[in-house]
Write a protein that binds this DNA or RNA. Structure first.
Lengths: 127, 127
DNA sequence: TTGACGTTTAGATAATCAACTAAATATAAC
DNA sequence: GTTATATTTAGTTGATTATCTAAACGTCAA
C-alpha cells in the first residue's frame, strides 16, 4: 500500500472505473468480454487491465486461451477503497445506464461472444 | 459526487497528495506556504490547489492578499475518501520524511516566510 | 495614487497517457 | 505440425497534463 498516487491514478480513468463497476456485478469476466463492453480495442482493454492489476485492484486467472479477471479481495487498503467506489458510483447515472448493457456480454459464454464479435466485424468489413 | 474519475484523478498526483497530507497536519495553510513546501513555482502550486478545490477536497478563505486553504469537511463522500487517504499515507515513508520538513514553513507566519523566500531568491541571483 | 506584493491566469514546452495497428506469444483445434 | 484464436507487447499518434515564465489581477501600504 505504498504508492497511493499510483493507486488513485489507476482509478482516474473512466474506462478503468467501468471495468471495476462491471466486476462488482459479474464476479468474473474474461478479457474479451471487457474488450467488447468497453468498446475499445483488445490491446487497449488489456492495457487497462494491466494497470488495474498492477495497482492491486484485480487479479487474473488463466484458463487455456482465456484470461479471467476478478476483483482482488486480499489487500485491506484496496478493499476499503473498492468499497468507497462501489458506494459512490451508485449516483453516476451515466455509468448505470452503461451497466445495463453489460448483460449483452455476460448472458453468453466467452466463446459465443467471440463468434458474435467475428460476425459483427465481417459485417462491417463487407459493407 | 458524480465524476468519480475526476475526483480520483485529483488524488493521482504526488504533489497534490502532499498538499492533502500537509493539510492533515496543519489545519490551514496559505498558498505561499504550500508553494514553498512543494518546491514548485507559485503558479504550479496554485494550479494544483485549483484542481483539488474543483474536485471538492479543499476550500479557500481569502484574507487580504493572502489565500488560506483547508480541507473541505462538507461532502460525506469526499470526507470518507480523505479518511482513506489519511489512513493509508501512514505507510508512505518517503512522504512522512517530507512532512517532517513541513515545520519549516509552518513555524512562522506567511509574512515572515515570504521575507525568507525573497532573501533566498536574491542570494541565488547574486552568486 | 502609486508601487509592492500575493495569487491567479495565459501561453509555451516537455512528459505522460490512452488509443490504435501490427507483431509476438501462447494455447487449442484440425 | 499447421492453422486459428485469445491475449499481450511494441511502436505510433493525438490529447492531456505538469511545469515553467510572463502577464494580469486584486489588495495593502507608503
Amino acid at each position: 500500500m505504498k504508492h497511493i498516487d499510483k493507486i488513485c491514478k489507476a482509478l482516474g480513468d473512466r474506462n478503468r472505473l467501468r471495468i471495476i463497476a462491471s466486476l462488482f456485478l459479474s464476479k468474473e469476466l474474461c478479457a474479451c468480454q471487457i474488450h467488447e463492453w468497453l468498446g475499445v480495442s483488445g490491446a487497449t482493454a488489456s492495457n487497462h487491465l494491466g494497470i488495474l492489476a498492477n495497482a492491486g485492484f484485480i487479479s487474473s486467472r488463466k484458463d487455456g486461451k482465456w484470461v479471467h479477471y476478478r476483483l482482488n479481495r486480499t489487500d485491506p487498503g484496496i478493499q476499503s477503497l473498492l468499497k468507497w467506489v462501489k458506494k459512490n458510483i451508485s449516483n453516476d447515472t451515466e455509468l448505470n445506464l452503461e451497466l445495463d448493457k453489460l448483460k449483452l456480454v455476460t448472458d453468453c459464454s466467452p466463446i459465443e461472444l467471440r463468434i458474435r464479435q467475428r460476425k459483427e466485424k465481417s459485417k462491417t468489413l463487407c459493407c
